[in-house]
Computed example of a mutant assay.
Amino acid sequence: MTAETKPAKRPTSFDVAKRAGVSRATVSHVLNGQGSRFPEETRAKVLKAAEELNYQPSPAGRALVTGRSDILVILVPNTTFGSNLQDLVDNVTSHAAAHGLSVVVRFAGSNPGETLAAILHFRPVAVVDMGILGADEREVLHHSGAAVIPRIHTPEDPTHDINHVIGRTMAKALLRNGPRQLAYAALLDERLDPFGPGRYEGMKAGARAEGLPEPERLEIPLELGRASAALAAVKAKDSPLAVGCYNDDVALAVVAAGRALGLRIPDDLSVVGVDATAIGQLVSPRLTTIRIHNAPLMERIAADLAALGRAEAPAPQPASLPEVTVLTGETT
């Protein structure tokens, strides 16, 4: 007969307190970062006992004591986005894991109050805001004890917006070989579009700078027949058409629609996308696109994550715009 083996009992704060010769309250305070009022000898005993017993504090218990969990919420827009935002989320997740944090990715809804309530439900230690929260929502989170990162302040000037910069850059890339009829191609999607309006405004600013008419806005579905119909409605003039697109997916749809309409690329139709995706560089004609360099933003987020739990949080820094560059292909 085989004897049953009972699983090893998970050590508790009571076990740590007994080994260290202190109260459970002392153990709780020390292990939750609130042990500064105790002598160094007491803190050392608690930490040594916890290490010897391989004691891991319960996240739920810590949340009850401190009012916060070990959860980091990454708040992203509920929109179609490409590899840039995906890579940023992946990088934040890696840094969070290095600090022992669990990550929840939350898509923002159309109602700010409902989005805020959903975030507060997690009792997060911090929220990484990808450009969603307003000043009021940030203030509520601050009073709840959750840090909102990156800790930056952005000027009210709409031109100090990465999407505005992207739009201006697209216009410049499309016009580098001379004036053309400009258009902005948005993605026809049921989800929200927090990035498109700024890009369209940037393209309009680029057109004004060159003394050209305001670019027309068209909506492009990722389906050839309807994309061709949308493009044909704009390509009514004899002049060449230059289209700045929401992202590379839309740009590829515009290219396919142009070819279906018998347009020569880039002679009759020039196209610029955004995100510098791998697929855009594998097709023919190879896509001209905008690459966004998010390294400075990731460095700011990493520094703010490292500062969580410190007595004094770093002061907010002026927002620095990510660098954008044009990856020139064969569609311009």
Rank of each mutant, 00 (worst) to 15 (best):
V165T: 11
V165C: 10
I166H: 03
I166P: 01
R168C: 10
R168N: 00
R168A: 01
T169D: 01
M170H: 05
A171Y: 02
K172D: 14
A173Q: 08
L174V: 05
L174D: 05
L175S: 03
R176K: 14
R176H: 12
P179H: 07
R180H: 11
Q181W: 04
Q181R: 15
Y184V: 01
L187K: 05
L187T: 01
L188D: 15
E190S: 14
R191E: 11
R191L: 15
R191P: 00
P194L: 14
F195C: 11
F195E: 13
G196S: 15
P197G: 09
P197F: 02
P197C: 09
G198C: 09
G198N: 06
R199T: 08
R199K: 14
Y200K: 06
Y200M: 10
E201W: 13
E201Q: 14
M203P: 13
M203G: 10
K204P: 03
K204I: 13
A205E: 13
A207D: 07
R208G: 00
L212R: 01
P213G: 08
P213I: 05
E219V: 02
E219H: 13
I220K: 10
L222R: 10
L222I: 15
L222W: 03
L222V: 13
E223S: 14
G225F: 05
G225A: 15
R226T: 14
R226K: 14
A227F: 04
S228T: 15
A230Q: 13
A232Q: 14
A233E: 15
A233L: 10
V234H: 06
K235M: 08
K235S: 13
K237G: 15
S239Q: 12
P240R: 01
L241F: 09
L241Y: 09
L241V: 06
V243F: 07
V243P: 01
C245M: 11
Y246W: 08
N247G: 11
N247T: 01
D249Q: 14
L252D: 02
A253N: 08
V254Q: 05
A256T: 06
A260Q: 15
G262V: 03
L263Q: 11
L263V: 03
R264L: 12
R264W: 03
I265A: 02
D267T: 09
D267V: 04
L269G: 03
S270A: 15
S270V: 05
V271T: 05
V272A: 09
G273H: 05
V274A: 04
D275F: 12
D275M: 09
G280S: 07
Q281L: 12
S284N: 13
P285W: 00
T289G: 08
T289K: 03
I290R: 03
I290N: 02
